[in-house]
Design a protein around this nucleic acid. Sequence first.
DNA 1: ATCTATTCCTGGCTGC
DNA 2: TGCAGCCAGGAATAGA
Length: 257
Amino acid sequence: MPELPEVETIVRGLAPRLAGRRVENVEVLCRRIAPRSLSAVAGQTIRAVGRQGKFIVAECDRGRLSIHLGMTGKLLLDAQPGPHTRAIFTLDRGVLLYDDIRQFGRIEWNSRRLARLGPDPIEIEGGPFIERLRARRSMVKPLLLNQSFLRGIGNIYADEALFRARIHPRAIASGLSRARAGRLHAAIREVLLEAIDQGGSSISDYVDADGREGSFQDRHRVYGRGGEPCPACKTAIRRILVAQRGTHFCPRCQRRY
DNA sequence: ATCTATTCCTGGCTGC
DNA sequence: TGCAGCCAGGAATAGA
């Protein structure tokens, strides 16, 4: 489940190798993942590759190609097509494959979705973050997952950041003190930067553009650890549903108020 | 603004 | 060993 750190890792690997490449041909093997308009990319040169939240964005001559990996999407450079290959970008040198088992990913041309994204959680400063957070009356975890609130946080890093900030996932955002909101801001930055440093988290089957796994999954303190002792207080980590999402937290360390 | 529920999809797990 | 049934979950969507 690629979130910001996984996508950042992929982009760091891809950017230097895709910049300047000309897309000779695009073959879409799965209609649900990519539209017909994708053929507009053929003949254009990729100028730069970057990240916007969980989107990989390739700036081309006359527009931008955006790729959202969903749950199981992978971009693979110079690999062999397999049963889950959904799109094939033939380049002037090499080939870029989009593989996706569950088909939750999307490839779009000049996507309007990018304009609706909130600020980057690493770049936003503490002050604006605190104001933004305390203006909302929803539960804090669903808010962190809302991409128009912040871009790039998913289920893993929401749980990990809330644990580090000692905030209950069902706490109401507007009810958090400035000090606690500030701790959450710091925790989000810290956990995302550490995860990027570790090449992301490989759970289910995430790999980067060269097929390499990340190692941050070994440092998850609560995510996927229901029943295990809290690393801080040894209380059993609980797994509950919050807004239909599996949510892991320490009932002793993480308080609503 | 914000909530809940539903939909998409399939590999991998559970339980018999 | 085989197989049915369930589950994970990002984001869009509908409806309250």
